[in-house]
Amino acid sequence: MSLTLLDVKRVARLAHIAVSEDEAAIYQQQINGVFDLIAQMQAVDTTGVVPMAHAQDLNQRLRDDIVTEPDLHEKFQSIAPQVAEGLYLVPQVIE
């Protein structure tokens, strides 16, 4: 499998990354290199092997349903670019 230039631009758009024509060509080559590695792994016969959900063979640890977090919003908001009335302000988004 290899990516077209159009695929690269689409992936960049999904990731909200601005990519120039020159960069897109470079990334196309690099990403296709990754796909070559994937192709090598795909070639291995994995019949009967259960796909793993996580790299570590651990079960999810669970916590009790207790409120433990204090209100730290003033601290958090001290590094926010813009706040008002306790809200974080961002450029207008209208769906």
Partner: peptide
């Protein structure tokens, strides 16, 4: 939640 009220043309975010 996004608040599209009047914040000088900005959107307010309550998490």
């Amino acid at each position: 939640k996004s608040m599209h009220g009047d914040f000088h043309g900005m959107t307010g975010i309550d998490l």
